[in-house]
């Protein structure tokens, strides 16, 4: 049985416009799944609906076969962790305080964090290589570092699935690689990773499966090779791309290069 499954999920705005139309996909243990789609296609909405932050109009999400609406927020979010887009107006906590907030679903309402909670925080920060940020405020660190802090916060809840909204946007090459390597490493520990991205190359390079979301709300889901094809990208994004393998010091890497706009689509 798959860990997380979305069954014919439909979401529409009160105006009636369908954003997501009978979307189906599933996430297994330790899988890395990327969600691609043009701006405004509803990638963030899809993530939010998937983990119950927004409600499906029709269809549902299940975790281990149980409808997530039957789970309490506490139960749900000790299995699923969410990393929002890193924004500049994040509350100005010290980084270790921010990471500790990830323990929220495991600490009682009137309780204080225990020594064990604080140990988990230190371990998570160490694992992501951000121990040097301890004692710094979130306003004092770079965008890439903040993204790592937010990932550490998600890890601190010891989740089985981690959901990230464009984790590598707005980052330079090095930070992009750091984030992607981190996510890839997580899957080796049997954590499932589900993330939105604007980089088909990242999906090709790291993920096992992909979901491509078109503007009409329809989704194509399957193995990366089957989903990220020149034909599909042309259809969904309206651009001509070239998919190719290039030789690098780390062996062959598959990548995508945008080539031109489709005629009559400008």
């Amino acid at each position: 049985m798959s860990l997380l499954k979305v069954n014919k999920g439909v979401f529409s705005y009160p105006s009636g416009e369908k954003v997501l139309d009978e979307v189906c996909y599933e996430v297994g243990k330790g899988e890395l799944i990327s969600i691609l789609g043009p701006n405004g296609a509803g990638k963030t909405t899809l993530l939010k609906c998937t983990m119950g932050l927004l409600g499906w109009k029709e269809g549902n999400s299940t975790i281990n076969g149980i409808d997530i609406r039957k789970l309490s927020p506490r139960e749900l979010f000790s299995i699923v962790a969410y990393v929002p887009q890193a924004k500049a107006d994040t509350p100005n906590y010290y980084t270790e305080e921010m990471v500790l907030l990830g323990r929220g679903s495991r600490i009682g309402f009137f309780s204080q964090p225990t020594e064990k909670d604080r140990e988990v925080v230190l371990l998570c920060m160490e694992k992501l290589g951000i121990s040097h940020l301890i004692g710094k405020r979130c306003s004092e660190i770079s965008g890439g570092e903040l993204q790592m802090v937010l990932i550490a916060r998600a890890l601190a809840s010891e989740p089985e699935i981690i959901v990230l909204d464009e984790p590598e946007s707005n980052l330079d090459f090095k930070n992009q690689l750091m984030v992607m390597e981190t996510l890839s490493n997580l899957t080796h520990e049997n954590v499932a990773v589900l993330f939105n991205t604007h980089f088909p190359a990242h999906a090709l390079q790291y993920s096992t499966k992909a979901l491509m979301l078109a503007k009409n709300g329809k989704a194509i889901f399957g193995n990366v090779d089957e989903v990220i094809t020149e034909e599909n990208i042309k259809k969904v994004f309206g651009v001509n791309v070239a998919l190719s393998e290039i030789n690098t010091i780390n062996g062959t890497v598959r990548t995508v290069v945008p080539v031109s706009l489709l005629k009559g689509k400008i």
């Binding site: 962790a81 509350p91 929220g104």
Partner: peptide
């Protein structure tokens, strides 16, 4: 400490 977070982050902390 959950209060100043955005709505989605606050919910995702299981609160």
């Amino acid at each position: 400490n959950i209060l100043p977070l955005s709505d989605d982050e606050a919910k995702a902390s299981g609160t």
